[in-house]
Design a binder for these strands. Structure first.
Lengths: 273, 273
DNA sequence: CCGTTTTATTGATTTAAATCAACTAAACGG
DNA sequence: CCGTTTAGTTGATTTAAATCAATAAAACGG
């Protein structure tokens, strides 16, 4: 239940802490390698110059750094270009619920409360490892969608995919035990990293880069880090996984899938029709 | 953890059981009283004749009847015109997780697995009370959105709203105790019924029609009906609520909101920008 | 109206996971 | 490299909610 340390300065100034604008953005939208799975999937090649014009800036966010906090004025929406970001909410009792794991190509930051330019984010966003983000001005989203219906369709499709993941997390916390829930989460992240992070997956060892702490796992599925530890150790003893040094290896995929009631198809992104 | 009884006939025939097509639809889309909050909110008046042409049929679904089951081929997407529908998933262990409470004006049935015309629903849908539905052919959704970008924007906005509710349920099951979680759910449904169901709210008694069983409540937030009963009884003894005979009365709204950490603004539907 | 089924209620007991409490191992920052 | 912080590990104990069990009260369907 780690409470991210509030950065007093950044709150006072309503500025992003330690957020470096890339002087020389790593990619033009038109050649962006993650575009296929991102928001602009459906936007035709010849329109992408315009997309890039819409893009605000590309930022580099250091590991463990907060991108925004709940309540911050929502100037931007983001696509994660590279890295690993969590979206979360802190409750009155200090407990934290992780709402989403954002991987490269995912789109986030559009859930706000209030209306117009002063609307605030309903959740916080924080990098687990150093991350590169593409920011777009929130206020121009609507006009952009009106010009480019494919963008609105893409947004609806991504929303549907996020919804599917959220529902599976709900099923996990609501109706699965710790073992089942953890098995599902590990497999979900394993498959998503494999699909979305070019350098995150090592085929030789069947392992992924896995920057979550046991506390992060617990905050995602409603358990304490102590209990997460016990279950992970048990799974390691049984030869199902290995989870240490920020790497996750799946040793017995079949058994783990059975425990977690997981099938890759259930989390695959899909078209609306 | 009630398992809805499979209707053998309907499964074999892949037919909707007891679903009556209204010979004389109750409304033209152009005069539909719930249109303001539904999918076609943004569609200009002069385009609505065309919307209605897209509409497949209007159906009447009796209380407790299933509209579709997980895996059924997804021919239609729906707007609920009147009534109360739940979307749920049954796990391998027989437990049920309710994913969404659908109220008048809400749009559902677009979450499918697989692609193309053979795609199947990822969840089941069942009426809690007699419900009237507007059905639209799923396969024509994309072309319709391409012609009418407002529709895609509306869909993205509704998706965002559903996502907000789902995340709050996730927070409830993950990081709140039974009392907090139940308080939130009761208030959420109370406010939504008040906003979305013209005849569902009685101002004189501050009560709503509330067709959920205690098992439904439990299946929505990950508790057993026995424990839900104990918490509800305790809340009644404390004079916070009255929940009987399919009606819910909020007696001490302020205290209940504090317990549930609920504010009406957090579940209000909102525009994307 | 009456038998049947579903839903609600309450008590006794068990259990999965939380909490409390050390302690060890890794990662981090000069 | 070394002190400091953060993350992981393990055991003992408690607790919120599940399970088991038995009625009571409503709702339903002729």
């Amino acid at each position: 239940m780690a409470t991210p340390q509030p950065n007093e300065f950044s709150i006072l100034m309503n500025k992003k802490p330690n957020l470096q604008q890339c002087a020389d953005p790593q990619t033009e939208c038109i050649t962006c390698p993650i575009r296929k799975m991102a928001l602009f999937r459906g936007v035709p090649e010849e329109e992408l110059g315009w997309t890039q014009e819409f893009r605000d800036a590309q930022y580099l966010l250091p590991a463990r750094e907060s991108l925004y906090r709940e309540g911050d004025i929502a100037h931007s929406i983001y696509t994660l270009f590279d890295g690993w970001v969590i979206l979360f909410k802190i409750l009155d009792n200090g407990k934290r619920q992780i709402l989403r794991f954002v991987l490269p190509g995912d789109f986030f930051g559009f859930q706000v409360s209030g209306t117009g330019a002063g609307a605030g984010y309903t959740h916080g966003a924080q990098a687990l490892i150093e991350s590169t983000l593409c920011a777009f001005p929130r206020t121009r989203l609507r006009s952009m969608m009106e010009k480019q219906p494919q963008l609105a369709i893409g947004l609806a499709e991504m929303g549907m995919h996020d919804m599917t993941l959220c529902q599976h997390h709900l099923i996990g916390t609501g109706r699965k035990n710790a073992r089942e829930s953890i098995a599902f989460l590990l497999l979900e992240l394993f498959y998503r990293v494999r699909m979305q992070m070019q350098d995150g997956f090592d085929e030789a060892t069947n392992s992924i880069i896995f920057p979550l702490t046991q506390e992060d796992i617990g905050d995602a599925i409603g358990l304490t880090s102590v209990h997460v530890n016990r279950v992970l150790k048990e799974m390691e003893r049984e030869g199902l996984i290995r989870c240490q040094r920020k790497h996750l290896t799946i040793l017995d995929e079949e058994t783990l899938m059975e425990i977690g009631q997981f099938h890759p198809g259930m989390i695959a992104p899909r078209e609306l029709v």
